[in-house]
Design a protein around this nucleic acid. Sequence first.
DNA 1: ATTTGCTACTTGTAAAAAACAAGTAGTTAA
DNA 2: TTAACTACTTGTTTTTTACAAGTAGCAAAT
Lengths: 134, 134
Amino acid sequence: MSKQKRKSDCPINFALEIFGDRWTFLIVRDLMFKNKHYYGEFLGMEEKIATNILADRLILLEENGIVTRTIDEAHNSKKIYRLTKKGIDLLPLLTEAILWSAKYDKSTAADSKFIRKAKKDRVGLYAEISESLK
Amino acid sequence: MSKQKRKSDCPINFALEIFGDRWTFLIVRDLMFKNKHYYGEFLGMEEKIATNILADRLILLEENGIVTRTIDEAHNSKKIYRLTKKGIDLLPLLTEAILWSAKYDKSTAADSKFIRKAKKDRVGLYAEISESLK
DNA sequence: ATTTGCTACTTGTAAAAAACAAGTAGTTAA
DNA sequence: TTAACTACTTGTTTTTTACAAGTAGCAAAT
């Protein structure tokens, strides 16, 4: 999945050209909600991403300005991945996806506390999570 | 892209297993915002979807309860595609995607009137569009 | 000082999906 | 009765994904 010329300037298409695959959003999810920061942590995700796909998607996410990659000062062999502002700004999109899935998937594993808070106090929820990502 | 067992019950993954590709959301976009209802109309989209991909995605969207397919009574050779309630409920998700892309894509083709309305009166916008889809 | 293991990858290959070009079957219109 | 339209299907090539294995840099343990 390398850089190609865009199919259109439609905003939906813009988002799809970054996130229109099975894996990219799962990495963002782990960064956003599961406090994961290392390659090895993403590799451990429930959905079992392959090593090459993970490496590829991390590069793309960095190229698209959604995550940063820095060296862990305590352990030189480790790299820390973090969401940028642009990445954190995906929170409303992720939240709507979660709400939609929770509504229509009978066997959803969505966190009911999250759903309740999202319905009652969206602004507060966003503030809380944004704060946790600083 | 046929039916396979799910990788997880995570709500993000649930959405991705339906929409995690380059094309499915573009069809939903055309149904939601561009008043398209026929195979031939989708085929004419700016992004140039291939005939086999379109046919496949329409089947999947129907299987997932997001669109209905009915025969046009006036023209027996035509089929009408419409969003279901489940499909219309994707509106907040699509809207957040549009807002995010409009914010971060310098050359976005996002409709500025839509963006303004979405920022000022989300509820009103949703009501307006939902009404137009009945 | 050297093996052992951890971390973050890369490489090779098979399988699956997408892209592209062409063809087909059932209307409808001329 | 032919021509055109509509919604597809089929075949082939190209691209992407999945899976298994290997590698390079660092750190701790023997």
